[in-house]
Amino acid sequence: MKTITTTEVQQLIEQGEKLNLIDVREADEVATGIIPGAQHISLGLIEFKMQDLDKKTPYIMVCRSGGRSGQATAFLEQQGFDVTNMNGGMMMWAGETK
């Protein structure tokens, strides 16, 4: 499984990179703050929403601490998607949220 740190993600955003972030936390967690531009698909809906994703597009999976996003990353990887898990999740995120 590919991984990336929160610091690396923040640096890429600050450099103007267009990242495809998917936040797999529950709605009440996302309401406390989400990385600007991230798409919210809770972990329980990933299986049903994956038809809306493009297998050629790289995605970075985000959750609270890295566990659920790791599950989502492993699942989507098995389905042929290009996915990376953001280690540490929002608990380690020091960047902007909305």
Rank of each mutant, 00 (worst) to 15 (best):
S65T: 06
W93T: 05
A72G: 05
F81D: 09
G80M: 15
A72L: 09
Q78G: 15
S69C: 03
A72W: 04
I4Y: 01
M91K: 03
Q11H: 03
A27P: 09
N85L: 10
K98H: 01
G88N: 01
E29F: 06
K49D: 06
T84L: 14
S69H: 00
E47Y: 13
V83R: 05
L43W: 09
V24T: 09
G44W: 13
A94R: 01
M1G: 10
Q79K: 15
G67L: 01
S69A: 03
E14F: 01
T97V: 14
K56E: 14
E26A: 12
L19W: 02
A38S: 13
K18E: 07
R64I: 05
R64Q: 05
I22N: 08
N85S: 11
I41R: 05
G80L: 14
M86H: 12
M61L: 10
K18G: 03
I22D: 06
Y59M: 11
R25H: 05
T57V: 15
S65H: 02
F81Q: 11
A94S: 04
M1H: 08
I46M: 14
T73N: 14
T73R: 10
T6F: 00
T97A: 01
W93N: 04
R25P: 05
F75L: 15
A31E: 11
M91D: 04
A72V: 11
Y59E: 05
P36A: 13
D52H: 10
G16C: 04
N87S: 06
S69L: 01
Q10C: 02
Q15I: 02
G80P: 10
L43N: 07
W93G: 03
E14A: 13
N85H: 06
D82Y: 12
C63M: 04
M92D: 09
